[in-house]
Design a protein around this nucleic acid. Structure first.
Length: 790
DNA sequence: CACCCCACTTAGAAAGCCCGAT
DNA sequence: ATCGGGCTTTCTAAGTGGGGTG
């Protein structure tokens, strides 16, 4: 054990990464913009949360959470969420300070409070110990290696780079390349050296695995292994991962399924108050619009204009309908609501029968056989026609997305597999390919943007997806060994005389510290959003002495609002980048994502901007779980996980819109609590009286209550108190999480091995954290060693 | 290098389902 | 039996990033 422990510690420590800690306010923005709904919220809600961050990753959370519960709800609601203070790990050792968050924004939207949700994950880095799972994990690397060797054919470049991460790491560390060129010794090299000296991964791994750990494992596993292993799918992971090129050897599937042809309902909409005849094609599009009546899409002028343009074309120049404003779609809307209602009213048997029919019809499309293994297909249904629902201010929002036909679809399938029959009689596929260097089963061009494609892939539970998921996390773990030097290097370059270098340094810093996305260029016919490299001068405000206030729309037009204290050189550099520019000019004028990534690749093999997000998310989870998990009951542990999950979601700015019923729900809860409190008061009064041998007071209706013993009353009081506390906690949690989306990070950013290992160590059933889909998706992580740390 | 093409991951909203309180 | 609400699942939009080309 000792050994193990130490290992663990080391790993942890290695976190050399001390958290940078930034704070971020929470951003939540998009919704705000869009919806007015938010406004409805009661003030209490608004209070919230901004978080600021504390510095270190470690302590923050605990304090908050513990203490808070005790306070009255209102008080809690009122506070900014302190919980959040945690540290955000982005950290570096560079030590930035925190800043208070931005003050100006309205809190409403931003708040996020602690979550209650369930998931957590941890993992430790590197230890792959043997074990079954181990096999799996190792596979890739090995595979790759093997493959690369074998296949001379395809591997142009990919293969090289793709060599297994592990291999790379090892080699890198061991033999630091000394070639470092120019002045700048590649960080990677340096890092390698450093790491190799003390704790090269290799060493770590071995130590951990071999020693005591194995013993531990056995013990632990004895109890739980089976539970976890039932989800693990070691067998499925094919050893065959190739690196870059060959993705499969045999591929069999049945193609895709098309939506049924349009069935006219014949309901007449009104134009200037009079019924209008429409052809089925015209009616179909009118119905698409009618049905959206109570979405906020139709409130947007862009949406209506685009819809009108396309529909008008269908109607023809001389149609009676000449303007959208005189259209009344409500007959169609009402018909639709009625149909929905009818469906709801069907008996359960009818519903079941309907469902079975559908299943039968789709069953054959749901599966593919990849290298002899049956795998689920992700999206085998071709997208039905509809009105394009672009997010944010998308210039094409509302345009008609036309029906996709077999002649639009290209199928990819094994050479020896039967070509799927075209499901629409008389039509045929656009093309059939046999390309085993890609994983898609079919694609068609996006009707909204012809230059883009819509692919049909395997489901996340497939080994193909699982393997690449695992590779993603291995790469992020590799960053652990390089991050120290990378931070040191960019810190040095904050003051470089080379302007490009300076921009790269600052951009990298922001990506690392704030988990910003890379920020590729966008076309004019897309919503105007930005990432790091595309930040505009107006998106960042320097606030003396050394804080930066960020405010911009990111992916999905979600607003990022955060004020952060940064190092002085960064602060100065930003001001310098802004000098002489207009607000709408690029902050980083000598930079784009490809330059940035090219630079990152010099620092670590395979490193790109997005790896920092994965790294920071996962390392944060690992750190928080390990710091905050205490002895305690199951639900307390789950709360710790949820808290960690929430912190990650905040770092990554994963938001959701406040549900329409949120404020109603809150007031309902408040009312219930109020009732309980008066009950409590009565009980206390009755208790006092009972102690003096007097009967209870009459209840609100004037009826006489039952005569209870003081003991019974005390029991009731205790029960009621507990109930109130629980409700207050629920309420706080709900308020806290009303704008935080926990799922995204769980699905995409948190190495599942962290979670699985933590569950094993703390005897938390994995089902408390992962739902069925996640268990299937993360089958590859199930047999991780309990000592695993990210 | 700018541009385009392509493949694949990441994302929030909507729809569906399920379960407990009434 | 109904309703409300949370959690899942589905859907598809919106990102990232690699590679080829001229």
């Amino acid at each position: 054990m000792a050994v193990q422990t130490s290992t663990k510690l080391n790993l942890c420590d290695d976190d050399d990464e001390k958290p940078l800690v930034f704070k971020r306010s929470n951003p939540k923005s998009k919704q705000n913009q869009l919806d007015g709904q938010l406004k409805q919220l009661p003030e209490q809600n608004k209070s919230s949360t901004i978080k600021e961050e504390s510095n270190s990753i470690e302590h923050p959370a605990k304090e908050n959470s513990d203490s808070e519960d005790a306070k009255p709800i209102k008080a809690r609601l009122g506070k900014p969420c302190e919980d959040s203070d945690d540290d955000k790990p982005l950290s570096s050792r560079i030590t930035p300070k925190k800043v208070g968050t931005s003050g100006s924004q309205p809190y409403d939207s931003k708040e996020r409070k602690p979550v209650a949700s369930k998931v957590q994950k941890n993992f430790s880095s590197t230890t792959d110990k043997g074990k079954t799972s181990y096999v799996i994990s190792t596979k890739r690397p090995l595979d790759k290696a093997n493959i690369s060797e074998k296949s001379s054919a395809k591997r142009p470049k990919v293969s090289d780079s793709s060599t297994s991460i592990k291999n790379m790491q090892v080699s890198a560390k061991k033999e630091p390349k000394k070639e470092d060129d120019d002045d700048f010794i590649p960080i990677s090299q340096r890092i390698k050296k450093a790491t190799s000296d003390n704790k090269s991964p290799v060493t770590k791994q071995k130590v951990t695995k071999v020693g005591p750990s194995s013993i531990k494992k056995k013990i632990k596993k004895g109890q739980k292994a089976s539970q976890f292993s039932k989800y693990s799918k070691s067998t499925t992971v094919p050893p065959s991962s190739n690196d870059g090129q060959k993705k499969w050897t045999s591929l069999v599937h049945n193609g895709v399924i098309f939506p049924p042809p349009y069935k006219s309902h014949g309901i007449k909409m009104l134009y200037s108050g009079k019924p209008v005849n429409l052809s089925p094609e015209q009616e179909e599009v009118a119905t698409m619009y009618a049905v959206m009546k109570d979405t906020d899409y139709v409130q947007k002028q862009t949406f209506r204009n685009n819809f009108w343009n396309d529909w008008h074309k269908l109607l023809g120049k001389n149609h009676i309908i000449q303007k959208l404003d005189a259209c009344d779609f409500s007959p169609i809307y009402d018909w639709y609501q009625n149909e929905k209602e009818k469906k709801k009213q069907m008996s359960t048997e009818e519903k079941k029968a309907l469902k079975e029919d559908k299943l039968k019809e789709e069953e054959k499309y749901m599966w593919a056989v990849v290298d002899g293994v049956k795998e689920k297909v992700g999206n085998f249904r071709v997208e039905p026609p509809g009105l394009f629902r672009g997010r944010g201010e998308h210039p094409k929002s509302g345009k008609l997305k036309r029906r996709i036909r077999p002649s639009d679809v290209t199928i990819n399938i094994g050479k020896d597999a039967p070509i799927p029959e075209c499901p629409i009689p008389g039509e045929s596929w656009k093309e059939v390919r046999h390309d085993n260097t890609v994983t898609w089963l079919a694609f068609w061009n996006d009707p909204i943007n012809q230059r883009e494609f819509k692919y049909v892939f395997l489901a996340p539970s497939s080994s193909l997806k699982g393997q690449s998921d695992k590779e993603k996390y291995e790469k992020a773990r590799m960053l652990k060994d390089y991050i120290g030097n990378i931070r040191a290097a960019y810190t040095r370059d904050f003051t470089s005389k080379d302007g490009t270098k300076r921009q790269i340094a600052v951009a990298t810093y922001l990506i690392d510290k704030l988990a910003l996305r890379a920020g590729n260029e966008k076309d004019d016919d897309e919503a105007d959003t930005v990432g790091c490299c595309t930040l505009k001068v107006e998106n960042v405000k320097a606030i003396a002495p050394n804080s930066l206030e960020f405010n911009f729309l990111g992916k999905d037009s979600i607003r990022y609002e955060n004020t952060v204290e940064v190092e002085i050189p960064v602060y100065k550099a930003i001001i310098q980048f802004q000098t002489g520019k207009r607000g709408s000019d690029d902050l980083f004028d000598r930079l784009d994502t490809s330059k940035l990534n090219a630079h990152l690749k010099e620092l670590m093999p395979g490193l790109t901007a997005k790896v920092f997000r994965t790294y920071n998310a996962s390392i944060t989870l690992d750190n928080i779980l390990n710091k905050e998990t205490k002895e305690g009951d199951l639900s307390e542990k789950v709360v710790v996980y949820q808290h960690a999950n929430k912190e990650v979601a905040i770092i990554c700015n994963h938001q959701r819109t406040i549900s329409k019923s949120h404020s109603a729900q809150m007031s309902r809860l408040l009312e219930k609590i109020g009732n309980l409190q008066s009950t409590l008061k009565e009980l206390k009064t009755d208790l006092d009286r009972a102690k003096k041998g007097r009967p209870p007071l009459k209840d609100a209706d004037g009826k006489q209550k039952r005569n209870l013993t003081p003991e019974a009353l005390e029991r009731k009081i205790a029960q009621t108190t507990v109930k109130i506390e629980k409700m207050e906690l629920d309420m706080r949690t709900k308020e806290d999480l009303k704008t935080v989306a926990l799922g995204t990070s769980k699905i995409n950013y948190l190495d599942p091995r962290i979670t699985v290992a933590w569950c094993k160590r703390h005897e938390v059933p994995i089902e408390k954290i992962f739902n069925k889909s996640l268990l299937a998706k993360f089958a590859w992580a199930m047999d991780v060693d309990p000592d695993f740390r990210f």
